[in-house]
Design a protein around this nucleic acid. Structure first.
Length: 115
DNA sequence: ACACTGACCACTG
DNA sequence: CCAGTGGCCAGTG
């Protein structure tokens, strides 16, 4: 393996960059990152990038959730509760594997970074 | 080398 | 409003 951690593919690297820039106590969605990078349809690839990113500490994948604010990838972490635990430690309230006041905690790179 | 799957989102009917 | 389909990249079988 060591696919991205060593080589870092184009799209993957961009995803990690954005996720890495996510402020503490803030969350974002796949579509937001995908749209910021290129097209919202690429949200799937973002999720796939996370699939490898969950193994990378530099990428707080726990701050990345789906459009519903649901912790979709919690199962991919060390433990199914690692994701919600990390979020709660950062001040993000998680209830029923979902982020409370998700829209308030939502961090849109296309709006915050924008450039 | 080909085909299918994968942590999804947005649009159309 | 709810349901269904399309679409992007990369990796594995």
């Amino acid at each position: 393996m060591q696919t991205i951690s060593e080589k870092n593919k184009g799209f993957f690297k961009d995803v990690y960059q954005v996720v890495r820039l996510i402020p503490c106590g803030r969350v974002t969605s796949y579509g937001a990152i995908a749209k910021y990078l290129s097209t919202p349809k690429a949200s799937r690839m973002v999720g796939w990038a996370m699939n490898s990113a969950h193994s990378i500490v530099d990428v707080p994948a726990h701050r990345v959730v789906n459009r519903n604010g649901l912790l979709t990838g919690k199962m991919h972490f060390a433990t199914p509760k690692t994701m919600e635990t990390l979020l709660q430690q950062e001040g993000v309230k998680v209830k029923d594997d979902k982020i409370v006041d998700f829209k308030e905690k939502f961090w849109d790179p296309s709006s915050e970074l924008k450039l």
